[in-house]
Design a binder for these strands. Structure first.
Lengths: 189, 189, 189, 189
DNA sequence: TATGAATGAGCCTTCATTCAT
DNA sequence: AATGAATGAAGGCTCATTCAT
C-alpha cells in the first residue's frame, strides 16, 4: 500500500545522507534507509539502481557547489597568497560542515566497493586537481619548496586535515579553521 | 610443546597481519587467514575469540615498540626542539613502514566494529597521549600557540599525515619524511 | 470511445505477445510490456487482473483460429488419410508459425504458474482432444495399432514435434513440414 | 549449531534432485533445498558455489552413465538396425526414468540462466551428438531419407519424445517404450 | 479511465562463529 | 589441541501488484 510522500527523492537523499554520515557506507543497509525515510525498499530502487549509485549521487551532488567555490577561488589572482589559502580552507571547511563530513572517504580508507568505482575516483581526482591548482598558484616558503612534489603533498595534507579535523571536533568550528589556517599558512610565503 | 604453540600463534599473526595490511579489516575474512596460515578456522578461534580480537592483538603488538620509542623520545630533554620533532616523525614513519601502515584506522575512518571497541580506543588514546606529550614539550611559534588546543591539534595532524602519507606514496620514503619534517617543523620554534 | 479502448487492448496484446514469444513467460515482466506498448503498468491491470491472465488471454485468442481450422479438418471425411494428416500438420505448423511458437508450454515444460492454471489446462486439453479426434479418424498401420493408447500418444507426439521443430529451426519451414509429414505418415495406413 | 549428518553431499544432491525434478529449476529455491535436506543454507554453498552449479552437477552426474551406455550402443556394429534403435530407446527411456526426467530442459524450454550456461549447452550438445551418431549409423527408409537433415531431425524427435513421454505418463513404462520403439522404427530400414 | 510511483515478500549469497570429531 | 564442515542471520536487489492522483 503506497504512501503519499512529497519530495520523495529529496527525502531519500536526506535520510540516506544522514545515515551515511553517521554510520558510514558499509554500516548502512537499504532497509535502514527504507525505515528512516518511511519509503519501501523497492521504491529506493526506483530512484537509484544500487546502493552504490545512491551513495555516489549524494556524494557528487554534495560536492558540486564546493567545486564551483573552488573555481571561484582559483580565479582570484590578485589576492595575497595567505588570504587565498585562508579562503580555500574556510570554504572547504564550511562546505564540509554543510555536508556533514561526507567525503571522508576521499583520503584515507574507503570501502572497497567505492575505491573501485570509476565515478568515485573521478570525483576524488577532480577535487584533488582543483585544490592543487590553487596550492600551486601561491609560493611556498623556501624550506618547503625544495621538497619533491610539494604541491601534491600540501594538497593532500590540507584536504586530509580539513576532513578529519571536522570529524574529530565538529563543534569547534572556529578553533578548527583558525588552527588550519595558521598551520597551513606557515608553508606559504 | 609450548614452542609449537607459540609458533602457531606467530604464524596466525603473521599471516593475518599481512592480509589486514593488504586488504584492510573488512575485506579480510577468517577463511583467508586460515588459508594463508595453513591453520584451520576453528583453530584461529582457539587463539582468538573473534576476528576483532585477532586484529586488536596484532595491532597492539605492532605498536608496542613504537610506544617504547616514543617514551625514549619523550625522555630526550636536552635535544633542540626541531631535532626532537624530526626524530619523532622519523620514528613514527619508520615504524609505520615496518608494520606496513597498520594503524591506518586510528585517525579517519575505522570500521564500526573497531570504532566501538574499548581496546581500540584505549590504544589510540595511548598513542595520542604519548605523541601529545612530546609535542607539548616543545615550543610552538607564536601564531600557532595562540590557537586553542594547539597541542592536540598538532598531534592529530602529525599522526594523520604520517599514516596517510605512507599509504599514499609508500615508495617515496625519503621524500615523505622530508616533507613531513619540514612541514611540521614550521610550527615549531 | 469503445474504439479507443479496443485499440488499447489490442496494443497491449500485440506488445505482450511479441515479448512472450521472444523471451518466454518468465523472462517478461510487466514493465517491459508497459514500455513496449507505451501503456502504463497500472493500465495493464485495468485490462487484465494479472500477468498470467494477460498471457492466457493472448494464448487463447491465438489458438482460436487454429481450433476452427482443426474443426474443418475434422469434417473432411472423404479425404485420404495421409492427405488428412498432411493437412493437419501443415495447418498446425503454419498456425504455430503465425503465432510464432506461442503454445510451446503446452507440451514439455511450462512455468509452474501456468501449469497450475485451470484455463491453461483446459485449453491444452481442448487442443489435444481436437487433434486426437483427427488422429483417431484415420487408420494406423498394424504394428502401431497394437500399442495401447496409440491415438493419445500419436497426438502428443505430433503436437510436440510440430511445436519444437518450429522452435529449433524456425527458418526451415519447408524442410520441417516435409520431415514431419513423412515421419508421422509412416504411422498412417 | 551444526548437526551431524552423514553423506552430506549425497543428501544435498538427493534432496535437490527431487525438488528440481518435481518443481523445476526456477520453482526451487535454496531454502527449500535446505529445509528438505535438513542442511543449513550456508552449508549448501560449502558444496556448491551457486544454485546453478548445484543443478549442473546433479544434471551432469545423472547423465554420465547414459553417455557410457550410448557409447556402448554406438559400438554395436553387427546388430540389426531396428534392434539398435530399440536398444537406444530402451536405454534412454530407462535412464530417463532412473533420473526421473531430469534433463527435460535439453529440448524445448529451459530457464534463461541454464540456456546461457556453457556447461549446460556442452552437455546438451554431447547428448545430441552421441544420439545422432547412432541414428546416422542405421539406414532410414527412402521416403524419409530424402528429407534434409534427417539424422538431426530424427535425433531431436527421438530425444524429445522419450523425455516428454516419460513425463506425461511416468507410470506406463512398457507402453511408452513400446510405442516409441514401434513409432521410431517405422523410419528405419 | 490512465498513470506510474510505491509496496514488500522473497530470492541468492556471504561470512563470523560454533562444535562434533 | 586442531580440524573444517555446519550454521543462519543478514544484505542487496527484483518484480507482480496496488492505489492515490
Amino acid at each position: 500500500m503506497p504512501k503519499i510522500i512529497k519530495d520523495l527523492e529529496k527525502n531519500i537523499k536526506k535520510s540516506a545522507m544522514e545515515l551515511f554520515i553517521n554510520y558510514g557506507y558499509e554500516q548502512v543497509d537499504m532497509k535502514m534507509i527504507s525505515k528512516k525515510s518511511g519509503i519501501a525498499v523497492g521504491t529506493l530502487y526506483n530512484y537509484y539502481k544500487s546502493k552504490k549509485l545512491l551513495y555516489m549521487d549524494i556524494l557528487e551532488e554534495s560536492w558540486q557547489s564546493t567545486f564551483l567555490n573552488l573555481d571561484e577561488i582559483s580565479s582570484l589572482t590578485t589576492i595575497p597568497s595567505k588570504e587565498k589559502i585562508k579562503k580555500l580552507i574556510t570554504t572547504l571547511y564550511e562546505d564540509t560542515e554543510t555536508r556533514n563530513g561526507l567525503g571522508k572517504y576521499f583520503l584515507g580508507n574507503s570501502p572497497f566497493e567505492l575505491n573501485e568505482d570509476e565515478n568515485f575516483n573521478s570525483l576524488k581526482n577532480n577535487l584533488l586537481t582543483k585544490v592543487k591548482n590553487i596550492i600551486s598558484s601561491v609560493s611556498k616558503i623556501e624550506t618547503l619548496s625544495k621538497c619533491n612534489n610539494v604541491d601534491v603533498m600540501l594538497t593532500e595534507s590540507l584536504l586530509l586535515l580539513i576532513l578529519t579535523t571536522f570529524q574529530l571536533h565538529p563543534e569547534n568550528k572556529n578553533d578548527n579553521i583558525n588552527f588550519l589556517v595558521e598551520f597551513i599558512n606557515l608553508s606559504i610565503k
